[in-house]
Structure formats: structure tokens, C-alpha cells
């Protein structure tokens, strides 16, 4: 079985979720429009790991009876271990910009807005950043607008920050100060990633991102796809030819 690009990204995110060096992920929440992070969570669960998943936009079986307010209260108490965030721009200090480019509030190009990022990024012990587009316009030296800062000064209450950034080209790790290259997806080169990244990072000598195993691919194409179809019908059609 040959893994598709999306399946590789799902596998890479799943390995980060299971990273034994990271704080435990007992309860993971996934926000809107996040098929790859959601699939990675389902893969972890379907592989038999005990994890509670709260998928915010699942039309049926949505775990919340007080909407997103309940999600934020859970996170505030420290009951969510891992969340996923992205950004229209992400910079080398893991600052996220979901608001826009140019002058405030995004007069050049307006993105949707910060959603809950300015809160969630502080409240979970770790965050996996996911942004498929890996280009100098997305991965910038410094974001135009900070929706949510990646680093806070001492004394500011914060449980965690980015664990890693997964893009369509590679996986970067984040150590609380800067990014370092962890692995290159098949077909990518160290020089190509450097050319397409607007911020500086450590390391060029990195292994190839491993493909999901045949067993993992079978789980993705079967039970994971079944769980995803109602929330992400287009994604499941495109990636797995689901009816």
C-alpha cells in the first residue's frame, strides 16, 4: 500500500500525539475545519490508545451541551491536554496570526479572526500547529498581527506552547524558543524547505518523515474514514474515495 500525501501528514501528526517525551494526551479537542488533525486523533484512538476526543464540529455525538463555552471552560481548568491551531501566518517564535495582513485589523488581506487561539494556546500543556501550505508568505520571520503569542514572559500563566509544526513539506519541533527541522516529507529537500520558510530554524540534516505502516493505512482507510465521513464528506471523498 502506498500512502497518499494526506495520509503521511495524518501519520506525522499521530506520531506527535503519541510522542512519549510530550505531556500525556488523555483528552484532545479538535476545532473546526481540521480534517487532518481530526483524522490523526481518530487514528490514535482506533489503534487502541485510550484517549477522549472532543470534536467541536461533529454534527452528531457532539460532546458539548453548552457549545464552545464549555470547551473553553474545560481548557481553562486544565482538562484539555492537547489542541490544534494553525494560522494565516506563523513565525519563528511560534506566534500565530489568524487576523490578517497589513494594518490592523487586516486591511491588506483579512483572515477570519482569532477564534479562541488567544486563550487555548496558553491553556493546554501542548499545541500541535498544522498548516499545509508551506511558503514564505505563510511561514514568516515576524507575523504582521499576533493573534496568539508562542512565547510569554516569565510570570504569565501558561501551561504550554507549540510542540511542533506540521506542514505540507516537513515537521518542525519547537523548544519554547525556536523551531528545528525534525523530518522532511518524501520528495522534499533541506534546501527546498529552507527556501520556502521565511523564518530561521535549526538543522538541515533530517530524516524522511516515515510513512504510515500498512496496518495504520488499513485503519485510516476503514474505521477512521467511517468516523470522519459525516463531518468531512469532501475530505473523505477526495482522500479515500468514500461514497
Amino acid at each position: 500500500m502506498i500512502a497518499s500525501h494526506e495520509e503521511r501528514l495524518i501519520g506525522a501528526v499521530a506520531r506527535l500525539i503519541l510522542d512519549p517525551a510530550a505531556p500525556p494526551a488523555r483528552h484532545i479537542a479538535v476545532g473546526a475545519a481540521s480534517p487532518i488533525p481530526a483524522a490523526a486523533c481518530w487514528l490514535v484512538r482506533k489503534l487502541g490508545h485510550k484517549v477522549r476526543l472532543s470534536l467541536l464540529h461533529r454534527p452528531r455525538g457532539n460532546p458539548f451541551t453548552e457549545g464552545s463555552r464549555e470547551l473553553f471552560d474545560l481548557a481553562g481548568q486544565g482538562r484539555i491536554d492537547l489542541f490544534f491551531l494553525g494560522g494565516g501566518q506563523i513565525d519563528g517564535q511560534a506566534n500565530l496570526n489568524l487576523i490578517g495582513t497589513g494594518d490592523w485589523p487586516g486591511r491588506d488581506a483579512r483572515f477570519p479572526g482569532s477564534f479562541g487561539s488567544a486563550f487555548m494556546y496558553f491553556m493546554t500543556p501542548r499545541t500541535i500547529l498544522f498548516r499545509e501550505e508551506h511558503s514564505p508568505r505563510v511561514l514568516v520571520e515576524r507575523v504582521d498581527i499576533v493573534s496568539a503569542p508562542g512565547i510569554s514572559p516569565p510570570g504569565v500563566f501558561r501551561r504550554g506552547t507549540a510542540q511542533a509544526l506540521v506542514t505540507g513539506r516537513c515537521v518542525f519541533g519547537f523548544d519554547g524558543a525556536g523551531f528545528s527541522l525534525v523530518s522532511l516529507h518524501p520528495g522534499e529537500t533541506a534546501a527546498g524547505v529552507r527556501d520556502n520558510t521565511g523564518f530561521d530554524y535549526a538543522g538541515d540534516d533530517a530524516p524522511i518523515t516515515p510513512d504510515p505502516t500498512p496496518g495504520e493505512l488499513a485503519v485510516l482507510r476503514g474505521p477512521v474514514c467511517d468516523e470522519m465521513r459525516e463531518t468531512y464528506p469532501d475530505f473523505c471523498r477526495r482522500v479515500w474515495n468514500a461514497p
Binding site: S68, R69, F72, G76, I99, W104, S114, F115, G116, S117, A118, F119, M120, Y121, F122, M123, I145, V146, S147, A148, P149, S152, P153, V156, F157, R158
Partner: peptide
């Protein structure tokens, strides 16, 4: 940011002038 809107409404529903919220510090 989402929880700030919920919190401002929760303050109004309790009839108190303000409520605190974690996070957000350092955001534009």
C-alpha cells in the same frame, strides 16, 4: 477572542461589572 465574548456575557448574566479570563496576554 471566543472565550472573552462568552465571559463578557457571563459577567452580564451575573450582574457583576467584570470577570477575569486567563490567556490573551501578549495578543494584539
Amino acid at each position: 477572542t471566543c472565550p472573552a465574548i462568552h465571559t463578557m456575557l457571563q459577567a452580564a448574566e451575573k450582574g457583576v461589572p467584570f470577570m477575569p479570563l486567563r490567556g490573551v496576554l501578549g495578543s494584539d
